[in-house]
């Protein structure tokens, strides 16, 4: 586990101007993983894109942690449906309509 692939929750929160409690809520709602085996709670940099989106939802759109969980769930459904539609379109493409 390379140290440079992890960022501490504390540092993340400092950079993004968000409370640590928010990140822990996301963890509690099982939207991301936190490694707390070391003294400092760490986040994998792989989780950053997702966490950044959650922070935007929270800070810019005033969505509370519970809302973020709901939005996240819906976004996954939307993106799944978009993929399904794209696959169906490709299938239909076979028939000259």
């Amino acid at each position: 586990m390379k140290q440079e692939n992890y960022i501490s929750v504390k540092t993340f929160c400092q950079h993004h101007g968000v409370k640590e409690s928010f990140v822990y809520s996301m963890y509690e709602f099982e939207l991301l993983q936190i490694d707390d085996s070391k003294e400092e709670a760490l986040l994998s940099t792989d989780e950053l894109p997702i966490l950044e989106k959650m922070v935007r939802l929270h800070k810019e759109l005033d969505i509370n942690p519970e809302g973020v969980q709901a939005v996240y769930h819906l976004l996954q459904q939307v993106e799944g449906l978009q993929e399904e539609v794209a696959a169906l379109k490709r299938k239909l493409d076979r028939f000259d309509f």
Binding site: R56, L57, L61, V71, L75, V78, E79, Q82
Partner: peptide, 11 residues
């Protein structure tokens, strides 16, 4: 802005 925010309107 809330209505059109890209995070809420993926792709």
């Amino acid at each position: 802005a809330r209505k059109y925010h890209p995070d809420l309107n993926p792709n």
